[in-house]
Amino acid sequence: MLIDSRLKAVHADSGGTDPEQEQLVQQLLTSLGPEGVDDVLDGTCTLIYLFMKWLREAHEAHEKDVVEYVVPTLVTSLKMLPRSVPPEAVPMMAGLAIAAATGLSPTLWRKQYGDWTKAELTPLEATAFLLAEHINRMTDDQDFATRMITEALTQVEEGEREE
């Protein structure tokens, strides 16, 4: 939901994020508690994994390497956001994307470096956002990445109901 709302805000010509929505997001995160925040972080890593999986498959269909074509663009975009993404967070986000591109769980890959720091939370969100936006541009559909995740969640729910 968070990534989808960020994508919609960017494309709405609103000139930025809605302060009321920002407040609602902060209230939600505060209400979750530490375990809930960990779930949001794991969920964001899962989004990154799913986005990179889709990108890997799309690039492989054209005999291209996803790391070669997506990661440099991601790094360049992250570096263009110095107020939101400190330079020291860029290598971590690139590594996270590469891990996902090679089929590794970003959450498990990250665990070797310890807990997430507060300074890495916005870069993590930005990474998921930029990957979703990359997919949307590739497909020429502003809602493709959101629909892809919604469909994946629906399939998981249906599979759980059948069991």
Rank of each mutant, 00 (worst) to 15 (best):
A94C: 02
A100E: 01
H62C: 08
V70L: 07
T46A: 15
A94H: 03
P106A: 05
H62R: 14
V90G: 00
T122Y: 12
K79I: 00
E57W: 00
D65A: 09
R110G: 09
L78I: 01
P123I: 09
W109M: 10
L121D: 12
R83G: 03
H59W: 01
T73K: 14
K53Y: 05
L96F: 04
P91L: 11
A61R: 10
V75G: 00
A61E: 05
V90C: 02
L81M: 15
L74W: 13
S77M: 03
H59N: 10
P106E: 02
T102I: 11
L104T: 08
K64A: 14
M93Y: 07
W109E: 10
L104H: 13
L96K: 06
A94N: 00
T46E: 13
K118D: 14
L47A: 09
G103R: 04
P91E: 05
Y113I: 08
A89P: 01
S84A: 10
G103M: 01
K64N: 12
I48T: 08
T122L: 15
K111T: 06
Y113H: 15
E88N: 03
A101F: 08
I48Q: 06
M80T: 12
L81T: 12
A61C: 02
L81Q: 15
E57D: 04
S77L: 06
A100M: 00
A61W: 05
P86T: 08
T73R: 13
E88G: 02
Y49K: 06
